[in-house]
């Protein structure tokens, strides 16, 4: 059963709440906007996920942040990042009790921030979140170039050598998060959030696609990003065959199965470890 919900200050936020036919005492699921796409999500992914989660007893809310989709732009003057977190808090108020947050791309970073800020969040699924290149990433990228285009790789190497001889005009910025700039900006910022969330016992699922290959290309890269953290509780899947939005049906089916399996485990953990609100 799906119904429209208006919530937040002045009921300015618009969402669709999918409720299970047989409600169970399970965390609700918040499906966050990806970039400026509205609440149905890439390839209508959020709609399908909401219905699958409701079929297993979870209430699922997909909604638009202020200024996206059918939620009017905010009038309180808050900056984008803070405004989004207020919108997520309003969504948590609406569903009540424990919740799991899921998001892709900027939605992933917003989900981690929400898990850091709000104790009601007991799990976060992060699809293609901000991550940083490592020596391991560069090594694999170089190997990939050599095997796929040896001549081109040689030419590039020669170019690099020439640049080494002549000083570069500007220092390279290799530790910057690529692709988007509304999410986390530094590895330290991510680590602060991640370590606190792990310490609180929040279940975490990371999924990386082949669409993120320019910044992520091997499963151990997350641990290499944060060598001081114990990431053994984190579940991680790497799908180099999939594009950023899992646009192929077969890739989405695999992703949905992984999300469902993680959500079941996360719900069991939450039921055992944390009091329900």
């Amino acid at each position: 059963m799906e119904r429209v919900v208006r919530f937040g200050p002045g009921e300015s936020l618009t969402g669709v709440l999918t409720e299970p036919a047989e409600p169970r005492a399970l965390p609700a699921v918040l499906l966050l906007d990806a970039g400026i796409l509205h609440r149905v999500g890439p390839n209508r992914m959020n709609v399908e996920l909401a219905r699958r989660f409701a079929a297993t007893g979870h209430r699922a809310l997909r909604f638009d942040f202020a200024g996206i989709g059918d939620s009017p732009a905010r009038t309180d003057g808050l900056a984008l990042g803070e405004g989004v977190q207020r919108d997520i808090a309003a969504a948590l108020d609406l569903v009540g009790g424990q919740a799991v947050v899921m998001g892709l791309c900027s939605g992933a970073d917003n989900a981690l921030r929400a898990a850091y800020r709000d104790p009601r969040v007991v799990g976060a699924a992060l699809l293609d979140p901000t991550v940083f290149r490592t020596p391991g990433w560069y090594a694999r990228r170089a190997m990939q170039k050599v095997t796929s285009d040896p001549f081109g790789a040689l030419k590039q190497l020669a170019g690099r050598v020439r640049k080494e001889v002549a000083p570069p005009e500007a220092a390279p910025q290799e530790n910057r998060p690529e692709m988007f700039y509304t999410g986390f900006q530094t590895r330290e910022e991510v680590e602060t959030h991640l370590s606190a969330v792990l310490a609180r016992g929040v279940s975490l699922l990371y999924v990386f696609s082949g669409g993120w290959a320019d910044i992520f290309n091997y499963p151990g890269q997350l641990q290499d990003n944060h060598p001081s953290l114990d990431l053994s509780p984190v579940r991680l899947h790497h799908h180099p065959e999939a594009d950023h939005t899992f646009s192929r049906r077969a890739h989405r089916e695999v992703l949905f199965a992984e999300l469902g399996s993680w959500l079941a485990a996360c719900s069991a953990t939450a039921a055992g470890a944390l009091p329900r609100a």
Binding site: R3, V4, V16, D70
Partner: peptide
Amino acid sequence: MTPFYFGPEERRLFGVL
């Protein structure tokens, strides 16, 4: 702007009026 569902139970449609 009013979002709502309409139509018969077996064919629920989302609309914004």
